[in-house]
Design a binder for these strands. Structure first.
Lengths: 206, 206
DNA sequence: ACCTGAACACCGTTCAAGT
DNA sequence: ACCTGAACACCGTTCAAGT
């Protein structure tokens, strides 16, 4: 498991190869297949190890909203440190690691007094926002690293691309180009969380 | 392009193969590589074709919120019909198809009067929620199809799995098990959109 | 019960050679 | 300018054979 995570961290999903793993463990593919069913299971197990480790660090005693923010930031940082976790989490096979995140979010949503009927849509919004932004952020970081750019260079490249879009067809995205240069990933991420939390507070109409 | 989309629809990302595509087009790999750089570009182009086709169907004249809901449902249904679009959209290479969705959302967010500084976090929340739930829904559908289950059987299987979780460690997820059997994917999806829209309406604190 | 390692059936991609 | 198709360097996975 440790060897798999190391390989994934070094060079992503394509870096985890049965041949590379065999070399690392000084063994043959048959030995590995004795313990796991296939590569998908191996990825899920590696992902689950990361998620379980991260969730274990959570503390109790804070307010529901503070706990939600803490869980969100924990997932964000974990995906940032292990970019492959993002895509593995959302892959159909990986429902168990996902439940590990869904559970604490759900507990806090319930503590906030959201009625039973609306709890699923609420956790759903939180969960997918967290995984979505986390995954995007990690993918950006990896793409930048692949092209040998630092964060500033990368944002500059994105801003330039967006600024070159057709002004008639893409007025909004173009207007974003300026902001993107100076933005703070974690702060913007938290602003989105707070937006959803405000939606939870606000009364439903029908 | 049409042949690629057909292959992807039939058997997902692993179904699009240069060999399968060559057979379909009665040609060799060299001919394909003359027109595209690699498989990643091919996937992105196929994805962009689907997204462009979908966004073209959008009508003007509705209220901002109605338009946001329409775009959201359009993406949801497109991913449901072409499950591979979900993962391709969120892959780092596919920023152009993503901008096609971001743009109309942003225009409506702006029309709702969201201040400049908060527009990015707002579209971000909408976009990632839409792509996240859409992708999850499509992945579930595909997983069900792979195992030869219909929707009811699949939800039953998920409910059973969740109901078997440790009651002390997973009280929330367990309590969801009952609801999941009777839920409506599209309705729950829209409930999440409305939650975020309420967050947009509600005043910021600081 | 667990490991070895050759072999199988694939991949994406390249490139000299053709038209 | 565009296509052909053999070849290269890989994959995940299996399975008879060992200990």
């Amino acid at each position: 498991m440790d060897a798999s995570i190391e390989l994934l961290d070094i060079s992503g999903e394509s870096g985890l190869t049965f041949r590379a793993l065999c070399e690392r463990l000084a063994t043959g593919p048959g030995a590995i297949y004795w313990h796991i069913a296939n590569k998908s299971d191996l990825m899920t197990a590696a992902c689950d190890a990361i998620v379980a480790r991260m969730m274990g660090a959570n503390v109790a005693g804070a307010t529901p909203k503070a706990t939600i923010r803490a869980v969100a930031l924990g997932v964000f940082d974990a995906i940032d440190a292990h970019p492959w976790v993002g895509s593995t989490l959302t892959s159909p096979a990986g429902w168990l690691p996902m439940v590990r995140i869904l559970e604490p979010l759900g507990q806090q949503v319930r503590a906030l007094g959201v009625p039973d009927k609306e709890q699923w849509a609420t956790v759903s919004a939180l969960l997918h926002y967290i995984l979505g932004v986390g995954g995007q952020n990690a993918a950006n970081g990896q793409l930048a690293r692949t092209q040998g750019l630092d964060r500033g260079d990368f944002l500059e490249a994105v801003a330039t691309m967006w600024a070159q879009l057709d002004p008639h067809e893409y007025p909004f995205t173009r207007s974003l180009a300026g902001q993107v240069r100076a933005h703070d990933d974690r702060m913007d991420f938290l602003a989105g969380i707070d937006l959803i939390l405000r939606g939870i507070d606000s009364p439903r109409r029908r």
